[in-house]
């Protein structure tokens, strides 16, 4: 255990000694706050009648304003921990720092476990930061319309801890992707293309195409929403059947473990030349 703690200390030092983590966190919190604040204004405005909504009555039943707005932390913020994990892993290949890394600790499996655990921790921290953004901006907008931001309600507290878990798991998935696809450019392209385009398309398709429908809920984004329990995407389109929240967590964990173990055998264990 002493050696794992050394490996963990080294991985934490790697992350905090370059600017990436706080630059990404800053962009994430800004993005989440703007979207959550903006849409909270719209929804709250419609709900209170201060913005004329015509036929619309705000959010559909079963989607409380608070949790829906606060869940922007994960529903749009999850790409940031994935990027952090993928960039942290691929940087080792890109800058050839695997050489000093494996010289300092030749037990490669231990190094990868330490990296994965470290990024999981940073992912959880990203969860906290993203929630600060969505709850501060969204809660403020809700309160300005005279509604209750309900920061301490049971629903919101549940959302908070599940959001933190989900962001932690996404960072671990990022590490797995990074060792599976060691090319940094390719990894970034895959993250952005999959999260912003391929997966939303598949989820929508699964809502309309019968034979796809049973698989839609196993997509990482669906599993993520199932775990958080609330997402604007489940309102928007093809609301397919969802997993239980804990099943969603297990599916995400499965993706992370599969990708990381796969990457261990395909890239991490290979000759460092």
């Amino acid at each position: 255990m002493k050696n794992l703690s050394s490996a963990l200390a080294s991985e934490v030092a790697k992350l905090v000694s370059v600017r990436l983590w706080w630059v990404l966190a800053l962009i994430m919190v800004g993005y989440v706050a703007v979207v959550a604040g903006g849409l909270a204004t719209v929804f709250a405005g419609i709900e209170t009648g201060k913005i004329p909504g015509g036929e619309a009555h705000g959010l559909p039943p079963g989607f409380p304003l608070t949790t829906t707005v606060y869940s922007f932390a994960t529903s749009i913020g999850y790409v940031f921990p994935v990027l952090l994990g993928a960039l942290a892993a691929t940087a080792e290949f890109r800058y050839q720092t695997l050489t000093p890394t494996f010289l300092a600790d030749p037990r490669r499996g231990r190094v990868l476990v330490a990296k994965s655990l470290t990024l999981t921790g940073f992912g959880a921290a990203y969860g906290v930061i993203a929630l600060v953004g969505s709850m501060a901006a969204g809660g403020l907008a809700i309160a300005l319309f005279g509604l209750d931001p309900a920061f301490l309600s049971d629903e919101v507290l549940t959302l908070i801890w599940r959001s933190i878990i989900v962001m932690a798991l996404w960072a671990a998935i990022g590490v797995g992707l990074g060792v599976l696809v060691p090319s940094q450019v390719a990894a970034i392209v895959i993250v952005l293309a999959f999260t912003q385009f391929v997966e939303p398309l598949l989820r929508t398709a699964a809502g309309f195409i019968d034979w796809l429908e049973p698989y839609g809920k196993f997509l990482p984004g669906s599993a993520s929403d199932a775990l958080v329990g609330s997402s604007v995407f489940t309102i928007m389109g093809g609301s397919t059947a969802q997993l239980e929240w804990w099943q969603g967590g297990l599916v995400l964990l499965g993706y992370a473990v599969l990708a990381t173990v796969g990457g261990f055998f395909t890239s991490w264990r290979r000759d460092v030349t």
Partner: peptide
């Protein structure tokens, strides 16, 4: 060439010193 260009020299060494305890 085995350096992260964004890391300082001291931190570069500190990262691996930690790994090796």
């Amino acid at each position: 060439a085995s350096f992260h260009p964004g890391r300082s020299a001291f931190n570069h060494l500190a990262v691996y010193a930690r790994a090796a305890a």
